[in-house]
Simulated assay, not measured.
Amino acid sequence: MKPRGLRNNNPLNIRHSADRFQGEIEGNDTGFKTFSSESYGYRAAFVILATYLSRGCNTIEKIITRWAPPAENNTECYIANVEKWSGIPRNKTLTSADGAAYQRIVAAMSRVENGIPADTRQIEAGFALQHKLRITR
């Protein structure tokens, strides 16, 4: 059986909130949002991370501490895995032009959340659906 996040097309397990995202649909999960496709689930994650960036959460350590607070998670383990699987140091300062890094971070977060490697094509599709983060060449 697919992990919960992938069944909900919500690979980063975004909790229900008042925020409504493109592609969000009514689902049966009482704890987490459901999206019409996996790419829309990833899009929502990128939008949230762009909001985090605008509020000073600009490193993996700051992002994960907010995303997966210690009261609910083994935050240090989560940070260590995202750092290892993304190849990005936990304290590297990110900007809105670091879209490629954000894609690797989201792939690693999805792996932590679901226990299996992410589908990079879906991550790329979700990234393309948003306009807050970008890739500079």
Results as ranks from 00 to 15, higher is better:
residue 1 M to L: 13
residue 2 K to Q: 11
residue 2 K to C: 01
residue 4 R to K: 13
residue 5 G to N: 07
residue 5 G to I: 03
residue 8 N to S: 11
residue 8 N to A: 08
residue 8 N to E: 13
residue 9 N to S: 10
residue 9 N to A: 02
residue 9 N to I: 03
residue 10 N to I: 03
residue 12 L to Y: 00
residue 14 I to W: 08
residue 16 H to C: 05
residue 19 D to Q: 13
residue 19 D to K: 13
residue 20 R to E: 14
residue 22 Q to L: 13
residue 22 Q to D: 14
residue 23 G to P: 10
residue 24 E to A: 05
residue 25 I to N: 10
residue 25 I to T: 14
residue 26 E to R: 14
residue 26 E to W: 12
residue 26 E to G: 11
residue 30 T to S: 10
residue 33 K to D: 05
residue 33 K to E: 11
residue 35 F to G: 02
residue 35 F to L: 06
residue 36 S to Y: 02
residue 37 S to D: 14
residue 38 E to R: 09
residue 40 Y to T: 01
residue 42 Y to T: 05
residue 43 R to Q: 15
residue 46 F to R: 01
residue 47 V to G: 00
residue 47 V to S: 12
residue 48 I to F: 01
residue 51 T to A: 11
residue 53 L to R: 06
residue 53 L to D: 04
residue 54 S to T: 11
residue 55 R to S: 10
residue 55 R to T: 07
residue 58 N to G: 01
residue 59 T to G: 01
residue 61 E to S: 13
residue 62 K to Q: 13
residue 63 I to L: 08
residue 64 I to D: 00
residue 65 T to R: 15
residue 67 W to I: 03
residue 67 W to V: 06
residue 68 A to M: 06
residue 69 P to V: 00
residue 69 P to Q: 06
residue 70 P to R: 13
residue 71 A to N: 14
residue 72 E to A: 10
residue 72 E to R: 10
residue 74 N to G: 05
residue 74 N to T: 08
residue 75 T to P: 15
residue 75 T to H: 08
residue 75 T to G: 11
residue 75 T to L: 12
residue 76 E to F: 07
residue 76 E to Y: 12
residue 77 C to N: 14
residue 79 I to T: 04
residue 82 V to M: 09
residue 83 E to V: 06
residue 84 K to E: 11
residue 85 W to N: 09
residue 87 G to C: 03
residue 88 I to L: 04
residue 88 I to G: 02
residue 90 R to C: 09
residue 90 R to N: 06
residue 91 N to S: 13
residue 92 K to S: 12
residue 94 L to Q: 01
residue 94 L to F: 12
residue 95 T to G: 12
residue 95 T to Q: 04
residue 98 D to M: 03
residue 98 D to R: 02
residue 98 D to F: 08
residue 99 G to I: 00
residue 100 A to C: 05
residue 102 Y to K: 04
residue 102 Y to V: 03
residue 103 Q to S: 05
residue 103 Q to T: 00
residue 104 R to A: 15
residue 104 R to I: 06
residue 105 I to R: 04
residue 105 I to W: 06
residue 105 I to Y: 09
residue 105 I to M: 13
residue 106 V to G: 02
residue 107 A to H: 02
residue 107 A to F: 06
residue 108 A to P: 04
residue 108 A to F: 05
residue 110 S to Y: 04
residue 112 V to I: 15
residue 112 V to K: 11
residue 112 V to T: 09
residue 113 E to H: 01
residue 115 G to N: 06
residue 115 G to V: 08
residue 116 I to P: 05
residue 116 I to L: 14
residue 116 I to E: 15
residue 117 P to L: 06
residue 118 A to W: 00
residue 118 A to Y: 02
residue 120 T to I: 14
residue 122 Q to G: 08
residue 122 Q to Y: 03
residue 124 E to R: 06
residue 126 G to E: 07
residue 128 A to V: 02
residue 129 L to P: 05
residue 133 L to K: 09
residue 133 L to R: 02
residue 133 L to M: 14
